[in-house]
Design a protein around this nucleic acid. Structure first.
Lengths: 177, 177
DNA sequence: TTTTCCATGTAACTCGTTACATGATTTC
DNA sequence: GAAATCATGTAACGAGTTACATGGAAAA
């Protein structure tokens, strides 16, 4: 019964946003890409597809609204079944721990295939990108309410990652001395 | 020219393993699933597909070997072009920083849709899963050579994640007091 | 003797993306 | 008048998975 795809998270997110107040697709995608990019990566076609699907399933209702002369919006609201599904997905999401994978480790594994100086220079570039991301996060204005948690999450993982990377760089530069 | 898909990592990994010594598909998939699961998630059909593709592209050569009465193995070796491609992919991988996404944060964002006690209980389950993973990593026998870095990476991210999660649980339980 | 392991593969499917199409409206 | 923004969608493709098929050999 439980549908263990990563699509779950995206559905949960859309349902949750609509649950807060009725919204239309464009608005949600925009919000997600700016404020929630650290949580999920949800593109327009996926969003529209999921909204259509969830409407067909009976979790959402559509209403076309046109304000002034703007293009008409397709505004969504939660049905009782939608609320049930939201609760189910929320419970599962809260109780589940997702562990990450680290594709960047593959390069580290084979680093000794390169001259040490070159490997260290490339890792220095990786480090610079990490730092850039870190200052970007640090510079971001404080997010309202619970959203601050997501910022905090990114921040703490970047710190951990930097510590690990510095260890790797250190070990590599000291090897064979 | 640069092909920015996540398939890159998988190709780099296969090329790197074959570069160390000639290997066959089954062997590599087995090794990846046991020793390198924290880096990439590579399933059999994907591996066989990529090995075929890279052979067709001219990065690998195949040789069928049969030891004793065992089913014959398709053993791969790197061509000069394969070595070039390996170098290219390795350089790109080492210089690139991948930031993670946290789908588990979505639940946290909507946690106040649940009675606080229930939310806390669900997060406690998530925490338990994290701890279980942590002890599993701690209990693992020391990995040889550079592989220890990947273990260390997982370990340090689990620690960071636990710290963050405890903060969330703490904040949530203290709210409105 | 049945199950597990070794070893390779294929077909169908799901998920998600990119790139495109449409059209009005506001801003430069 | 051109470009960016608001708003919705489709078609084609890419990546990867599950489930299946095959067949021999070793272990239980």
């Amino acid at each position: 019964m439980t549908n263990h795809t990563y699509r779950m998270e995206k559905q949960l997110l859309l349902l949750g946003l609509i649950r807060q107040r009725s919204r239309h697709g464009y608005e949600m995608v925009d919000y997600i890409e700016t404020a929630l990019a650290s949580c999920v990566d949800l593109k327009k076609p996926t969003a529209y597809f999921l909204l259509d699907k969830m409407t067909a399933t009976g979790w959402l209702t559509q209403t076309d609204q046109r304000e002034g002369n703007r293009p008409s919006k397709r505004v969504y609201e939660l049905t009782p079944q939608g609320e049930d599904e939201f609760q189910r997905l929320l419970q599962e999401n809260l109780a589940t721990f997702n562990d990450a994978t680290f594709p960047g480790d593959i390069g580290v594994i084979f680093a000794d295939a390169l001259p040490r100086a070159e490997a260290l220079e490339l890792l220095a570039r990786r480090r610079a990108a990490l730092i850039a991301r870190q200052t970007e996060v640090q510079a971001a204005p404080p997010h309202p309410g619970v959203l601050q948690w997501t910022v905090e999450h990114v921040r703490c993982h970047l710190t951990a990652d930097l510590g690990w990377l510095d260890n790797v760089i250190n070990d590599l530069s000291k090897r064979g001395e």
